[in-house]
């Protein structure tokens, strides 16, 4: 079921920029066109680029927003991932990310 929805209509999450648009919906209550416009402006791409995995692979890599790892050909041990990437996402989107704030406080940063 989830795989079908993902293929039929999903933005692709980390494969593209669906997670970033989702953050604006969840945190700011932005409707989809506004959320896409907001993220696209921050990333300096067009709204339609946000669901293009080829464009976003490079953008995510350049901005350190985390990329999907697989096989031997797409591993990025020296790039930001998970919590590290979320620090950058919070800064880039100018949106508070709860676990980032707590990590910062708990680590004494």
């Amino acid at each position: 079921m989830s795989a079908t929805h993902a293929n039929a209509a999903g933005m692709g999450g980390m494969r593209a920029a669906g997670d970033l648009v989702a953050r604006m919906q969840m945190t700011r209550g932005m409707r989809l066109p506004a959320a896409k416009r907001y993220v696209a402006e921050k990333l300096r791409v067009s709204p339609s680029d946000l669901s293009d995995p080829v464009v976003m692979h490079d953008v995510r890599g350049a901005l350190g927003l985390g990329r999907i790892c697989y096989g031997g050909a797409a591993l990025y041990p020296d790039q930001p991932s998970a919590m590290e990437a979320k620090f950058r996402i919070a800064g880039l989107l100018d949106v508070p990310v709860n676990c980032v704030d707590r990590f910062r406080a708990n680590a004494g940063l």
């Binding site: 293929n7 209509a9 999903g10 999450g13 989809l32």
Partner: peptide, 10 residues
């Protein structure tokens, strides 16, 4: 499926 560029958040 939806058109390219019309994808939504899951």
């Amino acid at each position: 499926s939806v058109d390219i560029g019309s994808e939504v958040v899951l």
